[in-house]
Design a protein around this nucleic acid. Structure first.
Lengths: 244, 244
DNA sequence: CGTTTCGTTGATAGTACTCAAGTGGTGTGG
DNA sequence: CCACACCACTTGAGTACTATCAACGAAACG
């Protein structure tokens, strides 16, 4: 089942709105001219080659993720990519079973790594913006490691809900709502949890009134403040995923 | 007890040697001129300020790490920095209790972020090298998240031993040997394990003959191949921490 | 309307955590 | 030189959390 592509919705509130792929102006017109627009459906894989044929993807809409699966280990969702993010092989470790997958209906710009590097280097603004974005992605990666390493299952799930709420949520009468672009398995693999355990956690959250969701994947977070209180890293998440 | 600073030793073998801070030539003469050399003793903290007074550190020798400690949670060692690595606030998430600490006797170059950015941008080679290094650090961060999230305690510890062996180890008659620059607590916090649990793991490793260590912190890995077999990510570790 | 897939839930097992006691090395002072 | 305290590490026993396995139910698909 395809879930809706939330990233195309216009922002609704100032504090809990989605952001456009690029914040300030459009310094990526040069990229647009040299890049190939690629549309990917849910579960579609994108090539993640090494240096000679390395591609750079710039996310335009939707959600992607890099997966790994060591033999004998459950699949892992290592990183999530939102609109504006930069994806390339050299940023990702050489793990067994590494794939770049669209979790959603997505649109990306693809261009050869060489072209990307020279284009980016052509103007200082583009360079600065790309570096800022890459720094942000690095920080998010570290934050994710921190969440996986230090928090309990409930706290991890609350952290993900906060992240998705900040990224995709639109305020409504019943609370912040959005369509979850991830399947149950995706979420479990992202949070380093067993799907069964995750199911217990979601049941607990629903019982506590922190979460309502229809089977279509549409989710409502009725108590945003309580959700923020349910994870020790809510401030960090807001800084990295909230509006700038 | 201070442990030795291994990073100044010359390489001994081709496959398991240490690397100099910079691999190819010395493209960082410009940095050297504008940077302030800073020496730090074990446990010394270095400022990790935000944008207005942000500093960039380039590691010259020794080992550093960023720590975080959410209230009510054990301390976490989020990332390790080796010679050649670039450290700056914007690369790290805004976690509670965030500090940059020297785990070792270290020497770093410190310079204002603005100066660093302009210096790096002055020549394409420096820019390329800095980006390569930052990509590598990003990949290491993701790999660490993968290790923390998917592997058992034993596998995590084996992964760390492989990492340290590749970075610091010198071949000897009894096996690969090096001085561990991390305390027991450091290791536990880095691997997201309890110190007690870590102690059990090391005992198990010693019993299996994978590890010998004197209380001075000097460690010998008698069976490198068996150690590689003890972690599913040995190939990835070798790619990121081994000689290039 | 069967078949498949996904999510839920219960029972059980495994792993790591917590608390506490014990051990060995180290440094200090008598 | 020994007694003592201190610290880091080890180890045991009990607990908590998550994983595993299996059964069940509901929705989706042919």
């Amino acid at each position: 089942m395809d879930t809706l592509d939330n990233t195309l919705r216009p922002p609704v509130s100032q504090h809990l709105s989605q952001r456009p792929a690029q914040r300030s102006g459009e310094p990526d017109v040069a990229l647009r001219e040299h890049a190939t627009p690629v549309r990917a459906r849910r579960r579609q894989r994108l090539a993640l080659d090494h240096a000679p044929t390395e591609s750079v993807y710039v996310v335009r809409s939707g959600l992607l993720g890099v997966e790994a699966a060591a033999p004998g280990k459950p699949r892992q969702l290592l990183e999530l990519y939102y609109p504006g993010d930069i994806i390339r092989r050299s940023l990702v470790p050489d793990l067994p079973g590494l794939t770049l997958t669209a979790l959603n209906v997505t649109e990306v710009w693809r261009l050869p790594a060489r072209s990307f590097d020279t284009l980016i280097a052509s103007t200082p603004e583009q360079m600065a913006q790309a570096q800022r974005r890459l720094s942000e992605q690095h920080a998010r990666s570290t934050l994710h490691a921190s969440i996986i390493g230090a928090l309990s299952g409930d706290e991890r799930f609350a952290s993900l809900l906060v992240e998705l709420g900040l990224r995709l949520g639109t305020p409504g009468v019943a609370g912040l709502s959005f369509d979850v672009p991830l399947s149950r398995t995706d979420i479990a693999d992202y949070l380093a949890l067993n799907p069964d355990t995750l199911s217990r956690i979601t049941s607990r959250f629903k019982a506590r009134g922190l979460l309502q969701h229809a089977r279509t994947g549409h989710t409502v977070l009725p108590q945003w403040d309580a959700l923020l209180a349910a994870t020790p890293v809510s401030a960090t998440l807001t800084a990295l995923h909230g509006p700038h």
